[in-house]
Deep mutational scan, measured.
Amino acid sequence: TRVETATETAWISLVTALHLVLGLSAVLGLLLLRKQFPAHYRRLRHALW
């Protein structure tokens, strides 16, 4: 049972790390898009919101 708990903890930390990386890359991508293609960014924002 101890090994299972350790594996679960590892999976949870892995998933958390993946979510963090995905969130950060999404934010960075949006910032880059905003900087380089303001028109595209505006259109995207209108489409999303």
Rank of each mutant, 00 (worst) to 15 (best):
T1N: 07
T1H: 11
T1P: 01
R2H: 14
R2K: 14
R2Q: 14
R2E: 13
R2F: 14
V3G: 02
V3T: 04
V3H: 00
E4M: 12
E4Y: 13
T5P: 03
T5Q: 06
T5L: 04
T5A: 07
T5K: 02
A6G: 14
A6I: 05
A6K: 10
A6D: 02
A6T: 10
A6C: 10
A6N: 06
A6M: 11
T7E: 10
T7Q: 14
T7R: 10
E8M: 00
E8Q: 00
E8H: 07
E8V: 04
E8P: 08
E8A: 05
T9F: 11
T9C: 08
A10W: 09
A10T: 06
A10K: 01
A10R: 04
A10N: 09
W11I: 13
W11V: 12
W11A: 02
W11T: 00
I12H: 05
I12P: 00
I12T: 11
I12E: 06
I12S: 06
I12R: 09
I12C: 01
S13F: 15
S13D: 08
S13H: 10
S13E: 02
L14R: 01
L14W: 11
L14A: 05
L14F: 06
L14I: 04
V15Q: 08
V15P: 02
V15K: 04
T16G: 02
T16R: 03
T16P: 01
T16C: 09
T16Q: 03
T16E: 00
T16A: 13
T16M: 01
A17G: 09
A17M: 11
A17N: 00
L18T: 04
L18A: 00
L18P: 03
L18M: 09
L18G: 02
L18Q: 03
H19S: 15
H19L: 10
H19E: 08
H19Q: 11
H19T: 13
H19N: 13
L20Y: 01
L20H: 06
L20P: 07
L20I: 13
V21E: 01
V21M: 14
V21S: 15
L22K: 04
L22H: 01
L22G: 14
G23Y: 07
G23V: 15
G23A: 14
G23K: 09
G23C: 15
G23N: 08
L24R: 03
L24V: 10
L24P: 04
L24W: 12
L24M: 11
S25T: 13
S25I: 02
S25R: 04
S25W: 00
A26C: 13
A26G: 12
A26V: 14
A26Y: 04
A26T: 12
A26P: 00
V27G: 06
V27L: 11
V27Q: 05
V27S: 04
V27C: 11
V27A: 10
V27E: 03
V27P: 03
L28K: 06
L28A: 05
L28C: 05
L28F: 05
L28T: 02
G29P: 03
G29R: 07
G29S: 12
G29M: 14
G29C: 13
G29D: 02
L30V: 12
L30S: 09
L30T: 08
L30K: 05
L31P: 04
L31H: 04
L31E: 05
L31D: 02
L32F: 04
L32D: 09
L32C: 06
L32Y: 11
L33D: 01
L33N: 03
L33M: 12
L33H: 04
L33A: 11
R34N: 01
R34D: 07
R34T: 11
R34M: 11
R34Y: 08
R34G: 09
K35G: 01
K35V: 10
K35W: 10
K35T: 06
Q36M: 10
Q36W: 05
Q36A: 07
Q36T: 15
F37P: 02
F37N: 02
F37S: 04
F37D: 01
P38W: 03
P38T: 06
P38N: 07
P38L: 00
A39S: 13
A39R: 11
A39P: 01
A39V: 13
A39Q: 13
A39L: 13
H40F: 04
H40C: 05
Y41F: 15
Y41D: 05
Y41M: 10
Y41K: 04
Y41I: 10
R42T: 11
R42H: 13
R43F: 08
R43I: 10
R43C: 10
L44P: 09
L44V: 13
L44Y: 09
L44F: 14
L44G: 02
L44S: 04
L44C: 11
R45V: 10
R45D: 06
R45K: 12
R45F: 08
R45I: 09
H46W: 00
H46E: 08
H46T: 04
A47Q: 10
A47N: 10
A47T: 12
A47F: 13
A47R: 14
A47H: 12
L48N: 01
L48M: 13
L48E: 05
L48Y: 04
L48G: 06
L48S: 00
W49R: 08
W49H: 07
W49Q: 09
W49P: 00
W49Y: 05
W49V: 01
W49M: 00
W49C: 08
W49G: 01
